[in-house]
Write a protein that binds this DNA or RNA. Structure first.
Length: 455
DNA sequence: TACTTCGGCGCC
DNA sequence: AAAGGGCGCCGAAGTA
């Protein structure tokens, strides 16, 4: 990726400096709590492992693998499940080793698996997060690296430790680790996130009027609307959870270039494996049954009255009727690249070389979205320096900034960042043709307890 | 023992 | 027409 203008170069130059200041600042860790949590989690892992060792499956396992038996080995696990329970994955590539990820394992409904997966989650927490973070602490502070020059799409990456993948979605796991991230004494953590930044930036490329309208009109809700279509529900029957699945297993995958053959099985699994229910308490499986859809079907031979068929129609409608301008942009952008051999982002970075279609349409959106964050971060850091403020920027996660802020600077800091992100940024880059929004969260205790702030 | 590759899984 | 974008870190297993 190459900067084509002075401004594009300057973004990298100033960005690298701002990020290095962030690295030097570091984020405060409650080391005592981290140590206690590590011991607690290790004990829990041991307890579960001992329970699992009483299982018949493990006794068979010992007979087969003897001294080499290792519960942490997914390969052995697959082999034993196959031997004892006749397990084979439904969508297995015959040329590959039998896969045993969480999804495959959940196809088996046996108690051993439930416990095993709970233990694996705790092991991930223990090794990657609790121990991995502990290892990097210096004088109570963690200094993750943030690099600008390594990611193909122009985003940043973070390592030693990676600050950009600390658990949050699983509430039990998220709480255990994020509670260890604390503000310095007398301060609060303030996290400011752009709302739906990539979708907004995509509008600036594709200029699809329907998509722009979803952004401009806050009473409209794209994910709710797609939940209605995917699950054949009236608006008032869509729960938050149903909307969540439509968003993460249809809308985003579709935007990133997925298709019904991939999306329908994922959605179907959510419908059948998690007990999704509608607002009035009907199970979603039964609701779809009432609508005449009783099975998933297969992608290579799509039959009417299957979920596969239904999602194929939803997808056709999504690109053909709902967002045709976006679909056309993707096509034109791709054709243009094929002609020239390169494509260029709105922030002035050019990618020259051999790329797949999904890369060509996704990279510029992802990079420009990150550049919005980077520009805001640079501006904010410069302002903090100029005004000799005590606020410290301590972390960045693609579309959000985490700061450690003294009590008496909270209001000033928040209102300034809002100004930078929602006013200064769109006036600096005139290609930003949709409003930008941010969400502010603060906590005086730790990173898990952050609470939304009305702005 | 040291290193690499792979599958798996954490985040946006 | 083809068919999900981007990362880093871990343990297991294979290789030198």
């Amino acid at each position: 990726m190459k900067a084509t203008t002075k401004d594009a170069y300057k973004l990298m130059h100033d960005g690298a400096i701002a990020l290095s200041q962030m690295e030097a600042n570091g984020i405060c860790i409650d080391v005592d709590l981290l140590e206690k949590t590590t011991v607690k989690v290790a004990k829990k892992i041991k307890t579960i492992q001992e329970e699992l060792e009483k299982d018949e499956l493990w006794k068979e396992w010992l007979k087969v693998y003897r001294k080499k038996a290792n519960m942490g080995s997914r390969y052995q696990m697959a082999d034993m499940l196959n031997k004892v329970h006749g397990f084979t994955k439904s969508t297995q590539d015959p040329k590959k080793k039998l896969s045993v990820d969480e999804k495959a394992l959940l196809e088996l409904d046996i108690p051993f698996i439930k416990r095993y997966l709970r233990m694996e989650k705790l092991k991930k927490l223990h090794s990657t997060y609790l121990k991995g973070i502990y290892r990097e602490i210096v004088d109570g502070l963690l200094h993750p690296s943030f690099n600008l020059h390594l990611v193909r799409t122009g985003r940043s990456q973070s390592n030693l430790p990676n600050f950009q993948n600390i658990p949050i979605r699983d509430p039990k796991i998220g709480k255990l680790i994020r509670s260890c991230f604390v503000p310095r004494a007398g301060r609060v953590l303030v996290e400011i996130d752009f709302g739906s930044l990539e979708v907004r930036v995509s509008c600036c490329y594709n200029k699809d009027p329907a998509l722009i309208e979803y952004i401009r009109d806050s009473s409209k809700d794209m994910h709710r609307d797609m939940a209605m279509e995917c699950f054949m529900l009236p608006q008032e029957e869509v729960t938050k959870e149903i909307r969540f699945y439509a968003k993460n297993q249809f809308v985003f995958p579709a935007f990133y270039g997925s298709y019904f053959g991939q999306m329908a099985p994922d959605l179907w699994e959510s419908v059948t494996k998690t007990k999704l229910i509608t607002v009035s308490g009907l199970r979603l499986v039964d609701h779809l049954k009432n609508k005449g859809i009783k099975r998933l079907g297969i992608k290579d031979d799509v039959r009417p009255r299957t979920f596969m068929h239904h999602i194929r129609e939803v997808e056709e409608n999504f690109w053909g009727e709902r967002f045709p301008v976006y679909a056309q942009w993707k096509w034109d952008w791709w054709k243009e690249y094929q002609k020239k051999g390169w494509f260029q982002s709105l922030t002035g970075f050019r990618e020259l070389g051999v790329y797949a279609k999904n890369d060509v349409v996704n990279h510029p959106i992802q990079s420009s979205a990150f550049h919005c964050l980077l520009w805001s971060l640079i501006e904010t850091q410069h302002w903090l320096n100029r005004n000799k403020m005590k606020t410290l920027l301590v972390g960045q996660i693609h579309d959000s900034i985490l700061a450690d802020v003294p009590e008496n600077e909270i209001e000033k800091y928040i209102s300034h960042v809002i100004e930078v992100t929602t006013v200064d940024l769109p006036s600096h880059w005139r290609w930003i043709i949709v409003p930008l929004e941010v969400e502010v969260e603060t906590s005086s205790t730790n990173w898990w307890e952050k609470q939304k702030v009305k702005v």
